[in-house]
Every structure is written in structure tokens, then in C-alpha cells.
């Protein structure tokens, strides 16, 4: 087996450009969120937490969808690059889910009066977080590269069901968490400048995710090559 049999995840020259785009858009999005966007009429300035909370949650959804696609890719083709993308995306997805939980908690305390409450959106998000932490723990149980990738892929495919459950949980019963404001029937229901700021935030977080994914997956590919070389 030669180490050149598998393509690199992304050519090295793309990653610096991705890093630059991610950092630049993050700086602009943060400035817009803290300065340019209007103050919420009801909640006041604390609503500005939305501009990191919602993009964190969106990026977590995206990351777990990528885990699903990469897991199918591994089971279908047995190409190691798919397993590298799956583990990278799961790890980053756990990070973004954690950030959505923490930023949500910091928003909940001044608006709801509590740091945490067991209402549907929070409960389902906590379950999603724990399931993907479990995915990462499962991977550490075996050092057989192919067996580990296959076991993980099965979990990666099953666990994606969390994404629509979390997203729709707010519509299933009377909840404390607010309903979808952007992805709703009838179009987005918020101020134009708020919407523009939120969308740029989502774009920035997506670029950060792409950069982290490329970097983390490349790391995993290098590990795979070393394991293959060791036989």
C-alpha cells in the first residue's frame, strides 16, 4: 500500500485562503453584530448574543450532516478520506454544539431568568451533544482502522436524525425557546439589518467550519498514512 493512493483532503494552497476568508468574515460579522445591527426593542442589547448563538447551532447541524454524508461514503467506497472527514466533522460539530449550548445559556439567564431548563429545544440539543461525544468515544475503542471506521459510520448515519429533531423541537409543543425566525413559512421575520448581520454571521461560521474541517481532516489523513505504513 502506498501513501499516495489517496488524494489529500484539500491542496495546501487552498487552506491559507480559507483561513483568511474565515478570519476576515468573522471580524466583519462581529463588528456588524456588536455595532451596526439595531438594538432589539424588547430584549435590548442582550439579543446580540443571537449573532453567535444561531450560527453556532447552524454550523453544528451542517457538521453532523457532513458526518452523515462522509459515513455513507466510507461504507460505500471504503476510501479512508471519508472516515477522515467524518471524524473531523464530528469533532468540530461537538465543539459548535457546545458553543451553541453555552451561548444559549448566557442568553437564557438575562431573558428567561435561568441558565438552563428542560424544555424541548434544550433537551434535544443536549441529547445531540451527548450522542456525538459518544461517537468520538466509540472511535477510541478500537485501533483497527477499518473496523473503527465502519462502527463509527453506522453511528454517524443513525445520529443524524438528531438534526431535524432539534430543529423542529420548538414547533412540537409549547416551549420557552422561540420559534424559527429565518427558516419559517412566509419568510424571515426580523429587521433587515438584523437579518443581514445574522446571515453574514452564518456565512462566517460556515467558512470557519470549512477551514477547521480541512485542517483537522488533513491531520487525520496523515495519521492514517502512518498507521498504514506501520501495517
Amino acid at each position: 500500500m502506498t501513501t499516495t493512493a489517496f488524494p489529500r483532503v484539500l491542496p495546501l494552497r487552498i487552506r491559507p485562503a480559507l483561513a483568511l476568508a474565515a478570519v476576515a468574515s468573522a471580524l466583519i460579522a462581529t463588528a456588524m453584530a456588536l455595532v451596526w445591527a439595531p438594538t432589539d426593542a424588547v430584549q435590548g442589547d442582550v439579543q446580540r448574543i443571537m449573532y453567535v448563538h444561531v450560527p453556532s447551532a447552524w454550523t453544528a447541524y451542517l457538521a453532523f450532516l457532513v458526518v452523515f454524508v462522509a459515513s455513507v461514503g466510507w461504507l460505500w467506497s471504503r476510501r479512508p478520506v471519508f472516515d477522515a472527514v467524518a471524524v473531523a466533522s464530528a469533532e468540530i460539530g461537538v465543539l459548535f454544539t457546545g458553543l451553541a449550548l453555552v451561548s444559549g445559556s448566557l442568553w437564557a439567564k438575562p431573558t428567561w431568568g435561568v441558565w438552563w431548563t428542560w424544555e424541548p429545544r434544550l433537551l434535544t440539543t443536549a441529547v445531540m451533544f451527548v450522542m456525538y461525544v459518544g461517537y468520538l468515544l466509540l472511535r477510541s475503542l478500537s485501533h483497527d482502522v477499518a473496523r473503527r471506521a465502519t462502527r463509527a459510520a453506522v453511528v454517524g448515519i443513525v445520529a443524524v436524525v438528531n438534526v431535524p429533531i432539534v430543529h423542529l423541537s420548538v414547533t412540537w409543543m409549547n416551549a420557552l425557546h422561540q420559534l424559527p425566525t429565518v427558516l419559517r413559512p412566509g419568510g424571515p421575520a426580523l429587521d433587515d439589518r438584523m437579518l443581514a448581520t445574522l446571515l453574514l454571521g452564518v456565512a462566517a461560521f460556515t467558512l470557519v467550519y470549512a477551514w477547521l474541517l480541512a485542517t483537522r481532516a488533513a491531520l487525520e489523513r496523515a495519521r492514517q498514512d502512518r498507521w498504514l505504513a506501520l501495517g
Binding site: 468573522a26 435590548g44 442589547d45 442582550v46 453567535v52 465543539l95 451561548s103 442568553w107 477547521l212 483537522r216
Partner: peptide, 30 residues
Amino acid sequence: MTENAAFIAAAYLIVWGSLAAYVLSLRGRR
């Protein structure tokens, strides 16, 4: 001083600080 400024500052610092820490951790991992 904005009301709830501490909550806003904490949310932004934790989110961007964690992402920056993750980037740095990737540099140290092999």
C-alpha cells in the same frame, strides 16, 4: 454601560476564544 454587557461579552469571548483555542490545538496535534 449596556445592561447585560457581561453576558454579551462572555458569549462572544467564549465562542471566539474556544474556536481560536481549537485552531491552536490543531497545530500541536499529530
